[in-house]
Amino acid sequence: MFKVVKKRQLNDLTYSMTILAPLVAQNIMPGQFVMVMTDENSERIPLTISDFDKEKGEVTIVFQAIGASTIKLSNKNEGEEIAHFAGPLGAATELENVRNACVIGGGVGCAIALPQAKWLKNHGAQVDVVAGFRNKDIVILEDEMIENSTNCIICTDDGSYGVKGFVTNVLRENIENGKLYDCVIAIGPIPMMRAVSDVTKEYGIKTIVSLNPIMIDGTGMCGGCRVKVGGQVKFACVDGPDFDGHQVDFNELMIRNNMYKKQEAEAKEHMCRLFGGAENV
C-alpha cells in the first residue's frame, strides 16, 4: 500500500497527488511514468511523474479526473492509501547536450513537462516554457513553471489570461524572432503535439513528444501501447514514452486511444453516480 501524503486540487478537474513510495523515487529520471491502481478492483493506469523527492521518498503525479479510474483516484485523501504504485517505467527523456530548449505544455501536460524543464534549468540550459490552456480558469502550476524556466509564457485559447492564441503561435513567433532552439519538448493533447511537430519540422528543430497510449502492464508485455514511429512498431512503455515528434503516426495513436470510449463513458457515468460526479469531489 502507498500513502497519499499530499493532495492539491489545481483546477476543476486536475489534481496533484504526492505519494510515499521510496523505492519508486530512488531511480526516477525526467520523462518516466508509474502504473497506478487505486484499489484491488481498479484498472492499471499509466501516469507520468510530475515531480519527485528522492530524500523524502515521494513521487508526485498530476492527473485530470475525467474517467472512472482517475475520478476514483481523485477521491483518495491525504493519509489514505492506494493499492499499487509501480515504477519508474519507460525510458528517460534524452536531455544531455540540450543547451537551448523550448518546453511546451498543453493543459495537464504542463505538469508532465515540468521535470524536463527543471532538469534542464538545473543543468545550465536556456529553457523557454510555453504553456497553453483553454482559458484562465484552468491555468495550473504557473509558479512552478516560472521557477523552472528562463522564460515562461502562458497562453490561452480565448485570451482570458496571458497571450491569446495557441502554443504553436508563440513557438513560431519565438523562432521567427531568432530563438535558436536545439530541442523542443511538447507534452499535451495529441492534436497539440502534432501541431507543434508540424511547426518544428519546417525549421528542422529536433522535437520530443511524450505519448500516453492505452497500456496494462507498462513493461512491454501487453503490446497495447504500440505506436508507429518512422514506420516501425514501437511500444510506448519500454521504447518511449518519448519519441521523435516528426516520426510519430499521430492518426493511429488517436484511433487506438478510442478503443474503449464506449465502455469508458459507461464506467464514468457509474462512477459519477457513486461519487456524485467529478465536479463535486
Partner: peptide, 20 residues
C-alpha cells in the same frame, strides 16, 4: 513477456490485440 505480431497491414487498428 514480449508479444509478437505478424507485421501485416492493419495491426494498428482498434480491436487488434496481442493474446497477452
Amino acid at each position: 513477456g514480449l508479444p509478437s505480431f505478424m507485421n501485416i497491414e492493419g495491426e494498428g487498428y482498434a480491436g487488434v490485440f496481442s493474446a497477452n
